[in-house]
Design a protein around this nucleic acid. Structure first.
Lengths: 342, 342
DNA sequence: CTGAAAGCGCTTACAG
DNA sequence: CTGAAAGCGCTTACAG
């Protein structure tokens, strides 16, 4: 069973490849090809199980109908859900998606961008790593459609869709303050990503503005070196909790939350009786598995859908679409179950 | 900034495209091209930022260097980790991977296989859905390299790599029986997948063989209709637990485990004091988040690596490789933390 | 109504 | 040592 080509069908039916091509692409009536011929060609194409070679089509038309998606780590829930949403949404517009993981490594990210460009993807969806700025600019210079997600470069004018981290943390902090917590700690990662900065700012601002807190407690931040080992990080968190004895703690990332919970377990600190915990939750992990902690939910799915739309705008496939191409979506604070029920 | 092609470089340096192609593909010395010319061509290619158009290369060479990976749901941890492992392993052989989710829907699976074939992927890695059998056979007839993972069709001779589910459940059961549990329940999904059947068989056999259990308890199985809603499933589990009052329960899938834990929480049944829980764990989720339950760990990463190797064998890229092309890997039983420590 | 021909950007025998 | 030419499998003006 060899691959069957347009030419094969043309030979068998005794017409030219052009005619076959027109018929198979639904342009029979447009080209005023006779019904009889059309039926005959369609029938033999069907019988032989003809599948067009998309490689050839792409080379000829200059379109691959493929979108390149660059995420940090596809095995991470946040990015996996993002990828899936994007895949589904892109499909509605007739596009396929190939995903790649940068592992937060710039060299790898650049290599992947190059690879995607070589494969002639029609557009790029990217959660950029630090320092990927110039690569993004290069893509724009080549007139490649690009949309940034989750992170962005304030100085560069690229369509993007972000999360309102500031708002999410603010709601959570207001809730904690209102509930009477007086020693709220904030554990974050020492990374110069703008979304991390935003989260910290929101924490600081919430405390500054709170009249009850203002007098009683001061800011209580642990900023952890991301290059430290897992065990080192845990040690830092454990020591911090022991020294500062907070009555509530805010973990600024999902991963820190996991580490933190391990520490709390080892120290036999009970949640939420002895310590209230709030964590950024990428994919309802905490909500599903540990209902005793409160979460700030990321609008992952909406982010994915919007990003695809912004890309389609650039590809000219989304008629009557968004006027704004730089979006910021809300993150939702969800108090722990027990709180909700009381 | 237009895309630069081989021809551009040929024109600028004043040689033919053939010469440029040879030089750029490292065949300069083989073709005995002068050093000076080689340097000149390389320099201008570099200056212009030349990137070969892989679409054209693929069309010409008949190789895309892309592998198609078909999984059930990429946003599921098990498949996400599998995909990532495969991606990393394939890269070592110079291959890229495109993933697709079947959502356990045959129609969609077939459409995706067709799409991958049209895109001319060089090989297929598949976790097959029920009834995908004929499609797999078709691929083999077209001499497309295929490897099946996690599931297989006993009647069809296709390279595959599976998990020894029977062994994993057996170890877990032996452990429970040895620890003195007397009313061990088994909650599974009513799906005719061979790996589910294996798990249930192992449960039954373990009980039959156990001398202590033989007299005291009989088999206690709840088999849930997979098409039921989440809430219905939870109700079934809750009723089953209430009626049967097991002292240990074995959830045959990760998802059932999550539902079960929700039920236990709602009924305020304490783990492991009032009920021991064992669950199949796809991706260390339970181990990380809930140390009080025991798990049967799937060898996801090894499965991915082995699958790539089996595919490379077929592509002729893995010299001196496996003689066996149907593998079965062990699943590991990991008792809950507290058990380990005592 | 239908066909011959060019061309997408490469690689690779073949010829000199 | 290097170039002219064919061809991978399509699409699409162009001609009749």
């Amino acid at each position: 069973m060899k691959k069957v080509s347009l030419k094969d069908i043309a030979e068998i039916t005794g017409v030219s490849t052009s005619t076959v091509s027109f018929i198979l692409n639904g342009k029979a009536s447009e080209m005023r090809i006779s019904e009889a011929l059309k039926k005959k060609v369609l029938a033999t194409a069907n019988k032989l199980g003809y599948q067009p070679n998309q490689i050839a089509v792409s080379l000829r038309t200059g379109q691959t109908k493929i979108l390149g998606l660059l995420v940090e780590d596809i095995s991470n829930n946040f990015f996996a859900l993002l990828a899936k949403t994007i895949e589904d949404e892109a499909e509605k517009f007739g596009y396929r998606v190939v995903y790649c993981s940068t592992e937060n490594d710039n060299k790898k990210g650049q290599a992947l961008l190059r690879m995607l460009a070589q494969r002639q993807v029609d557009g790029f969806l990217i959660t950029p790593t630090l320092g990927m700025e110039t690569d993004i600019i290069k893509l724009q210079l080549q007139h490649k459609p690009v949309v940034l997600m989750d992170r962005y470069f304030p100085e560069v004018d690229v369509p993007h869709v972000l999360v309102n981290n500031y708002g999410g943390v603010t709601s959570a902090m207001q809730h904690l303050i209102q509930q009477g917590y007086e020693r709220i700690a904030f554990i974050t990662v020492d990374l110069a990503l703008n979304q991390m900065q935003e989260r910290e700012d929101a924490y600081n601002d919430a405390l500054s503005k709170s009249s009850t807190q203002k007098t009683k407690s001061k800011k209580n931040i642990l900023s952890i070196d991301p290059t430290a080992s897992r065990e080192e990080k845990k040690k830092l968190i454990a020591r911090f909790l022991k020294n500062n004895k907070p009555d509530a703690v805010f973990f600024a990332t999902n991963y820190l939350g996991i580490l933190g919970l391990e520490c709390l377990r080892e120290q036999k600190i009970r949640i939420p009786e002895e310590l209230a915990v709030v964590c950024f939750d990428d994919h309802d992990i905490f909500r599903l598995y540990i209902p005793d902690i409160s979460v700030v939910q990321q609008p992952v799915e909406e982010m994915g859908r919007r990003a695809v739309h912004l890309l389609m705008d650039q590809l000219g496939k989304n008629r009557g679409a968004a006027t704004k191409n730089q979006l910021r979506l809300d993150a939702t604070f969800v108090p722990r179950e027990s709180t909700q029920k009381i």
